[in-house]
């Protein structure tokens, strides 16, 4: 399922040579050439009713990389990634302004069907949410009939997705048991397998490990390491070490704004902004 190694946006490695401009616009912290981005947002603003959760986010997300989103609780991390696959608008009263480009498409253009978009941009939630009335296997395959995909090789697809999610060995004998009958960490990997089975180009992960123990967390981090070769990942996390371990780029959000965005090394070794530094070193948040 190598997505698009041939795609022009994939020339990220060259891009990361670009120097950070000390006080340039935020986008320059990315160290990314603009044409290396798979997702670009401009003035992205999100609302819950009259409450503004995002205040003009400009960010470029690198193709084929892991981008971590960090920041204190309530700063808009979930809101941000939910804007990317248009899950934000599912909440009653929620709306979005500004623009998001996914490849050359404006995600919020009137002719974009959010349903189709979500098949390209998969999502894993904070709380594992397997479908309780479906078996493990049915859970993995749940996204397929929705896509009208040929489902003759269901077993194969299920096995591949479960292997990708590092869950196959643990569940291969209980594929017909309900999806909710396995442990929380296994359920989370099941949800990852379910998202991977439809072969998205981007995977959004909203604190995927926050409900898991260190062993399950380590498994998911390993998984991210493996997946990064084939898929672009954006992961929200409260765990600094995790962000440092798994990501190539890190974005620090604070009160609905993107405060700092750079490659993960720089972010954790020499943050530019004092608020970033305070947060990373645990002085607040």
């Amino acid at each position: 399922m190598s997505i698009s190694n041939e795609h022009p946006y994939m020339s990220v490695t060259a891009a990361s040579n670009d120097a950070h401009t000390e006080n340039g616009i935020r986008r320059d912290y990315t160290g990314l050439r603009e044409d290396a981005a798979l997702i670009k947002t401009a003035g992205l603003t999100a609302w819950f009713g009259s409450m503004q959760a995002l205040k003009g986010i400009d960010i470029n997300i690198a193709a084929g990389k892991v981008t971590a989103i960090i920041g204190p609780s309530g700063c808009g991390k979930s809101t941000f990634i939910r804007c990317l696959n248009r899950m934000h608008e599912v909440v009653p009263g929620a709306r979005v302004e500004g623009s998001i480009f996914y490849r050359e498409h404006n995600v919020y253009a009137p002719n974009v069907n959010p349903v189709m978009l979500r098949r390209q941009i998969g999502m894993v939630f904070q709380k594992p949410n397997p479908f309780p009335m479906m078996s493990i296997k049915e859970n993995v395959l749940a996204g397929l009939p929705l896509q009208g995909k040929n489902t003759t090789n269901r077993d194969e697809i299920a096995e591949r997705a479960l292997r990708q999610a590092a869950l196959w060995d643990e569940v291969k004998d209980v594929l017909d048991k309900p999806g909710s009958s396995i442990s929380g960490g296994q359920q989370q990997r099941l949800c990852i397998a379910r998202a991977l089975a439809i072969e998205p180009e981007i995977l959004l992960m909203d604190e995927p490990c926050s409900a898991l123990d260190p062993i399950a967390t380590a498994k998911i981090e390993d998984l991210i390491h493996t997946l990064r070769q084939t898929i672009t990942i954006i992961i929200v996390t409260h765990n600094m070490q995790q962000a440092a371990r798994v990501s190539d780029y890190t974005a620090f959000f604070y009160m609905g704004e993107l405060v700092e965005y750079s490659d993960t090394d720089t972010m954790f070794r020499a943050p530019h902004n004092s608020r970033t530094e305070d947060y990373i070193t645990g002085r607040f948040g």
């Binding site: 998969g122 939630f125 709380k127 479908f131 309780p132 996204g143 929705l146 439809i198």
Partner: peptide, 26 residues
Amino acid sequence: PNDLREAAYALGADRWVTIRKVVLPL
């Protein structure tokens, strides 16, 4: 639970499919 509706949406289900495959069975 709303989580399950969101899970279906995130897999690219529209509202009607979500109702038929997730909400009503449950």
